[in-house]
Amino acid sequence: MSDKKIIDKDTVLRVARLSRLILSDKELSQYSGQLGAILEYIDQLNEIDTRNTPPTSHPLSNLKNVFREDRVKGSLSPADVLRNAPRKKENFFSVPRVIE
């Protein structure tokens, strides 16, 4: 990561596509600059040698093996499932045609 440059616009565009966001030219410049500044600051983490430190993905490190029993509980009513739907048809959610 030592030769890392401030994030370039192509990378921001790629990340925006991955995030399903459309950026205007103005936004692209703005975000590129801001993300660059943030990443430059974050670069300070490279000062620390973490080779012998395990990662923490979760603060309660002792918590393991949390299960539920295989029992059927009630599902939502179709009315509840679909009441927030921007578009629906019968009991389905409706979306633009997905071409396969």
């Binding site: 990561m1 966001l21 993300l35 990662p55």
Partner: peptide, 29 residues
């Protein structure tokens, strides 16, 4: 949007270890 972009970048291929994994190790410290 700024945070989504930043987070997506940190997880994206080629950067995961340098950012996310590194941060999880610093979190331990």
């Amino acid at each position: 949007k700024r945070r989504i972009l930043l987070g997506t970048y940190a997880l994206s291929s080629g950067y995961y270890e340098a950012y996310y994994l590194k941060a999880m190790r610093v979190r331990t410290m």
